[in-house]
Design a binder for these strands. Structure first.
Lengths: 181, 181
DNA sequence: GAAGTCATGTAATTGGTTACATGATTGA
DNA sequence: TCAATCATGTAACCAATTACATGACTTC
């Protein structure tokens, strides 16, 4: 049985590109992994401690007056990260409340349900726009980093999926409109 | 602040179509909500107890020798369910390990990564086939139930999204192949 | 000088799975 | 008779968020 907790690998992965503080890890996850991952301070700080205790990262104090600790990945850390990356991806469980509410949709007013779908559509349209900006930004960087093409592939994923969400929303809104007549 | 625990509404929703045992609730969630929801016994049985204590469901023993309890939704239960259905859908957090591994893809062998994507593709192709069978089965039912069209909409969602997954997989596999040259 | 952000961390709580225990019924 | 499935339930554990506490630096 291997752990479900991926926080350690998220941290190690980000540190593989350079040293970071816990605060920076959190920020990077929020921005760069928006849409497919999230981490909270309550996960990150304790995990950094465990990683240091296990020798997978080292801690350096760079604070002058303000407390600040920067973590660097070690050889063992790199090995652990690579080993995890090589393992097959575990079956992910997705939970979509919108589909639950739709499934029981006959119990509420059609306008109410349409509102839910409309909100869903709006949110994902906005996210699609954000992804477009990410893509433009990334493509404008001529000095390509090693992971550049891989980052683009994750962006492409978001674009494909969110496009599918929009198409589905439109189709469902159409079906709901027809039902009202 | 309102609860994140949706188990109670899943149960109430299923009971809104007719009385069920805890065991049957679990089975229905697994089959009918496959792909967008899941529940474990460790959630269902305690929740049924709470629902009964709160007067949202009633319990009847239908066991002869084998212990079996069937739960029915009450008026209060219906009201609670409707009230939840009317509320806006909460922002869902999706976590996709495959994208995490892809993001750090430069650290492992291309063949290794291709294997991950290929597995991902296979799984979702299989699920797409399952959805096709669900759809055929559902469309063959002439005696339409109230929620029939809504169930079809959730199936359509799965089809759209999994189709997008396949397209993305193919595109990424192509990109990875090009990179190797 | 106030708001915003940088920065670290813990405690409490909730959410959820897994493993375990127990036993009856059904069908090959 | 053996495996599968029906059936209920709890305890232990793991995962994760949220709220809280604290304080420095920056920018308007």
């Amino acid at each position: 049985m291997h752990s479900k907790n991926k926080t350690r690998y998220v941290i190690l992965g980000l540190l593989s590109e350079g040293p970071l503080s816990g605060y920076e890890v959190k920020k990077l996850v929020t921005i760069r992994f928006s849409g497919f991952w999230s981490e909270s301070y309550g996960q990150i700080y304790p995990e950094l401690k465990k990683l240091e205790a296990g020798g997978l990262v080292t801690k350096t104090s760079t604070g002058n007056t303000r407390t600040r600790y920067v973590y660097s990945i070690t050889g063992e850390g790199f090995a652990a990260l690579r080993s995890w990356l090589q393992e097959p991806v575990e079956k992910e469980l997705v939970r979509l409340e919108i589909l639950l509410k739709l499934y029981f949709g006959s119990l509420i007013k059609p306008e109410n349900l349409q509102g839910h779908i409309q909100n869903f559509r709006n949110e994902h349209l906005q996210y699609l726009n954000l992804l477009g900006r990410f893509e433009t930004e990334l493509r404008s960087i001529t000095d390509e980093h090693e992971n550049h093409p891989f980052v683009l592939m994750t962006i492409l994923f978001g674009q494909k999926v969110n496009q599918a969400y929009l198409e589905w929303s439109d189709q469902v809104l159409e079906l709901l409109k027809k039902r009202q007549r």
